[in-house]
């Protein structure tokens, strides 16, 4: 199961998650960019990790067959009689790519405020990244693909641009994660950390293809599932209701009996478990963002526990 936040204290309102006081409380956090996965010097897209070439020496590591002989530290071989390979820190920055779901489902149920919570988390992650001198690129996506909400941000003082753009965004349309990710990848050539904030209410094939696409493009990916209390426990004043899918406009008349609600909740749990299991299998940090809980807990507990922050 994904890590969850169980207590509530600190800032209790998602609407104030972008305030300076709250953001300052996040200064100690870092984006967990992970380790490099490639041996090609100069092409490692993950910054801040050790690699075989660069300007800043990082450490030695034992030689393994297949390593380029040019990278062997001959001085160390002469001194210690063991083949060691020198590694260096990359010179490149690690951009943070925020992909925020702006489809109609993020505004439903309205009382959950899922998009508002996703925007707040995106703001906070952007602040953390900018505080560590890593640029931030944010985009929202809906049925029409992705749309950048701000230019590439390089300084925390530009953060209000992102906040204002997200606040002005009205969720609408349907969700197509694969198309949205493909569209985004065409618009940028700066791989980095990609954080996808969505309710992932799409077919498993869709979100799996989208996340695979990001992984294949050299991104370190994190998936944040936003969920609210009313989505977990839908309630109505009458027993019989006409369900209305805000994205597909499909209708379905059901009786909200206890048994039927239990079936729905079981399906919801299975859906979340499936995402979590798949993400875990593919090395993707996954975290539930509960809109009914305080944002401080999500950012200081849930996200570090999931490996998105450290």
């Amino acid at each position: 199961m994904p890590p969850e936040v169980s207590t509530a204290d600190g800032l209790d309102s998602w609407s104030q998650a972008g305030s300076p006081a709250f953001l300052r409380s996040l200064d100690r956090l870092r984006i967990n960019v992970g380790e490099g996965t490639t041996i090609h010097p100069g092409n490692n897209p993950v910054p801040r990790a050790t690699q075989d070439s660069g300007l800043e020496f990082a450490k030695h590591r034992p030689y393994t067959p297949g390593d380029d002989l040019r990278h062997i530290d001959w001085n160390a071989l002469a001194r210690h009689d063991s083949k060691l390979v020198k590694t260096f820190r990359a010179e490149r920055e690690a951009p943070l790519h925020l992909l925020v779901d702006a489809s109609a489902s993020m505004a439903t149920p309205a009382s959950d405020g899922k998009f508002r919570a996703a925007a707040a988390v995106a703001t906070c992650l952007a602040y953390i990244s900018l505080r560590n001198r890593d640029p931030v690129r944010a985009a929202v996506f809906d049925e029409g693909g992705t749309r950048p909400v701000a230019p590439l941000l390089r300084h925390p003082q530009r953060l209000p641009l992102l906040v204002d753009e997200l606040a002005a965004t009205k969720p609408s349309g349907t969700t197509n994660l694969t198309r949205a990710v493909e569209s985004y990848l065409h618009s940028t050539r700066l791989p980095g950390v990609a954080v996808v904030l969505s309710d992932f209410l799409v077919a498993a094939e869709d979100y799996q293809a989208a996340l695979r696409c990001l992984l294949a493009s050299g991104y370190r990916v994190a998936a944040l599932r936003v969920i609210g209390d009313d989505e977990r426990n839908p309630a109505a004043r009458t027993r019989r209701v006409r369900l209305w899918d805000v994205e597909s406009s499909q209708e379905r008349i059901v009786d909200l009996t206890q048994a039927h609600l239990a079936r729905y909740q079981s399906a919801l749990d299975a859906h979340i478990d499936e995402i979590h299991r798949w993400c875990k299998a593919n090395g993707i940090p996954f975290c539930l963002i509960e809109t009914g809980l305080p944002p401080s807990r999500a950012l200081t507990s849930a996200l570090p526990a999931a490996g998105v922050l450290r």
Partner: peptide, 16 residues
């Protein structure tokens, strides 16, 4: 009585 839901995806298990 209309209940707006984000997706019909999870309601297929509930009989109509």
């Amino acid at each position: 009585r209309r209940l707006d839901i984000p997706s019909m995806l999870l309601w297929h298990s509930v009989p109509e």
